[in-house]
Amino acid sequence: MTYVRPTFRHPDLPKNKINFTKKDYEGALSTLCAGCGHDSISGAIAQACFELSVEPHRIAKLSGIGCSSKTPAYFLGNSHGFNSVHGRMPSVATGAYLANRDLVYFGVSGDGDSASIGMGQFVHAIRRNLNMVYVVMNNGCYGLTKGQDSATADNGSKSKAGSTNLFNAIDLVGLGLELGATFVARSFSGDKTQLIPLIKAAISHPGFALIDVISPCVTFNNNVGSTKSYDYVREHIEATSTVDFVPVMEEITASYDDAKEVTLHDGSALHLQKLHQGWNPEDKLSAMNAIQTSKEKGEILTGLIYIEPNTNALHDVLQTTKTPLNTLKEDLLCPGIDALEALNQSLR
């Protein structure tokens, strides 16, 4: 057994604003298959958190069951984590978010966990607009049980054993748009230059941010005829635009004709270039249109699909206190008999 990660790192690793190196955002060594797209997404999440200088102890990783849901063990080893029941991550996320609104929440799920067993939970997390990043590591198959077609497998896609999928796929991006998600993006595990800025923008977004990441299963779904293989995705990928995340206080230096800037709620910005024709990320109709048109053409549309920068997340809707509920002490929660009397009086 020689699968041990050395403790040495590059001696000149850059440090972020809070004096951490990338090593501080690493997790345990992955036990997924070699070449799994999920590992690449894990790397992108760690890199995005490093670049945004998020303190690891301010992040909570929540997941269900599956290859995807194992990954939180392999990144952000210094952060909070909750590996919950299959498909039930949104419930745990809702509870955690209600208890402490101050953390950055990463929901990590897969196509089985979100589009099959957890569908009933997934849709309500969107509807309630939890302030979280919801990453779906989407490989179109049940990798952990040897590669059966999942609910996101495309109609006509061929499995490794040669059978063709006869059912229509659930498109999580289309579903997210329909249910009113305020940040919707699709990406590809093999394209970190797109994925990392999207994750950073999703962290900055104050509501539910869905990123559907196509993540090839090298062991069971990387064969010829599969529509989720590295080769197929690379041949059919289209992007709504290139994405640059510009943090708060940093000026945008370059400007192009065919470009658009979206200012996020916290003052940071997304700088988009080479825009898809007729697409405006802040116009849901054009986003839906772009998704449908691409689908007709057999393209896989990636990048930012839709954003509603100023959104009211669950705590704003419920008008709860700005103080995280889990820090409220007894004196505030039980203000005493006089306060109760006053309240009762006001209701008479």
């Binding site: 050395p6 040495f8 992955s30 590992d39 690449s40 595990s189 970190k192 090839p216």
Partner: peptide, 13 residues
């Protein structure tokens, strides 16, 4: 196949 696995795992980047 450009899966990035080597790039992600390399301890010394």
């Amino acid at each position: 196949i450009e899966c990035d696995a080597c790039m992600d795992i390399c301890p010394t980047d």
